[in-house]
Write a protein that binds this DNA or RNA. Structure first.
Lengths: 325, 325
DNA sequence: ATGAAAGCGCTAACAA
DNA sequence: TTGTTAGCGCTTTCAT
């Protein structure tokens, strides 16, 4: 498990290939503008493969002045399966541009994102939500060339989610809506955005804003919330996400009520267990992969100083109707 | 978002503090054995703070010969909230030893863990499950000094989970058990381990091994599985995890049966929605934070060449009894 | 088309 | 106690 293993350097490759280190570098990075005969190029490539040469990351970054490492800084919040799809796509899209993505999970006791950024020498940092200016500044100080918030404008499709939820309920005849907010503080900002989307949909339909109530993932909390909604004549509730929606469903069940007859419920995220809920949960799903790809494009663009092509965002939000509404 | 910002080097700090770069290095890394007068030390520290000096990661790693970056390589599998607790603790514990953790999520199209390891110049890599020897070799080639599987021996508490599930059911009088295996291929290895634990518990009790059936997260699959269990006179089933257990519950419900009367169900992981299931799900929870900490200790130990103190693993697995069993 | 040489910013012997 | 010096492995400009 702990073998140091002599490192193979570019010099080794050069010696084996019978060329200079410079040539090796040119070939391996296939630097444009250098017309290297195919014969030489092959020789270098073979030597590299033979020796299993891996360029030394630190040396490369030091010399080149950039590490091409992109750090995704995830704050302390409940992480779900949707996240991995986003991250995978982000990583894949970045890799196409020769960038390497790693993720930092911010925890109560661990390093801060800024710290981690400095330690790994990231070229770019993608933060969640909007980054505070002071943090952005610190990140730059730490060596990051580019710093982007996660959901600028389109990416998270966050407001549209709330809008889609509310529109769905409205289209099914509900006139008084509720919104189930998550208890986790880290989710507050995103929840507020989704709620805003729902509020806009209500306004468009000439309805009052949804009655927003916080619901932790416990039956008792859900009982309290659903009771208040019932009292307020709410007939349909949008939940921040599927977990919260499942809590609402549980609250209803506990009270001897049922969805959608007594109260329609729609979640968000379309987690795997949504369809297993009782009743199966109507939810809003959205294109996380697309979001990942768009984010990657934005990073690449600012890293290379190009203009950001606005990249169309269409049909990202979709209602998956099941029995709960 | 894209300000290069002139980098502050150790030289700048040295100049401001009126000392040499060496002294700066010594103070900042507070190298032992160098008795530097407090006055000088303070001067350096102040200069560094004033200039907001951050050592250049690549330069440091290149010179020191190690990056102190630890890479956690997560394969392509459904990632849950439990994971973040583990990662957070791992990161925190590593940070105490001046190591920095970043995570790589393996995806279908992105970079491989080996690739990522090479690109970031990780000093150590923590893999999931057991790493194949060829991969370990490649990782070393890529520059990793230490390579550890995630769950060697104790960490994941994986076999004990299955054992606890089965013992719980057996203690409640069930004589014929079922085991619900997940459909996701990435989970197969872990599932096999948990099943093994359950099998051992059965053997200890003089019972047949559990009837293992795969159950995807769809009601139809769960209906099929539960039907077969019913036919085989199974009265209690352990599920690989809570999601699978929730599927089993849904299958039972669909068939007009109920837990635990017709079939007792116990999950694993204690996800937040377990208590919201109908009926609330009995599950097995375990100490992910402890696991994270132990893994960190192992990494630190092999990185520093110390002997690994076996670190006691007690009371990590706990049955949380709810209505489903 | 290829090579020589000068760093990138830092660490760590070794001197002083 | 502090400074001088020599690299770490790579990129890249400038000669050849």
């Amino acid at each position: 498990m702990t073998r140091p293993a002599k490192r193979i350097t570019g010099e080794d490759v050069a010696r084996v290939a019978g060329v200079s280190r410079t040539t090796v570098s040119f070939v391996l990075n296939n630097r444009p503008g250098q017309s290297i005969p195919d014969e030489t190029r092959q020789r270098v490539l073979e030597a590299a493969k033979l020796l299993k040469y891996k360029p030394h990351a630190s040396a490369r970054s030091l010399a080149a002045g950039r590490s091409d490492i992109v750090l995704l800084a995830v704050p302390d919040l409940p992480i779900g399966a949707g996240m991995s799809r986003f991250v995978e796509e982000l990583a894949a899209a970045l890799a196409e541009h020769d960038l390497t993505l790693v993720t930092h999970l911010e925890g109560a006791h661990g390093r801060s994102a800024v710290d981690t950024c400095a330690r790994i020498g990231a070229s770019a940092v993608i933060g969640f939500e909007s980054l505070e200016p002071a943090v952005v500044e610190a990140l730059h100080q730490a060596g990051a060339e580019v710093v982007l918030p996660l959901r600028s404008d389109d990416s998270g499709a966050t407001e549209p989610v709330g809008r889609a939820q509310a529109e769905h309920l409205i289209s099914r005849g509900h006139r008084r809506l509720g919104y189930a907010m998550p208890a986790h503080p880290g989710l507050a900002a995103m929840a507020a955005e989704r709620l805003r989307g729902a509020t806009l949909a209500c306004k468009d339909a000439g309805l009052e804003p949804p009655l927003a109530l916080t619901t932790s993932l416990e039956i008792s909390a859900a009982v309290t919330a659903t009771t208040r909604w019932s009292e307020a004549a709410v007939t349909g509730v949008c939940a921040f996400n599927d977990e919260t929606a499942i809590a609402v469903l549980a609250g209803l069940r506990e009270r001897g009520l049922s969805a959608p007859a007594d109260m329609a419920v729609v979640g968000a995220d379309d987690i795997p267990t949504a369809r297993l809920a009782a009743p199966p949960l109507t939810t809003v799903s959205f294109d996380l992969r697309g979001a990942g790809r768009r984010r990657a494009e934005a990073v690449v663009a600012s890293l290379t100083g190009q203009d950001v092509p606005p990249s169309p965002v269409e049909g990202v939000v979709r209602v998956v109707q099941r029995a709960s509404s």
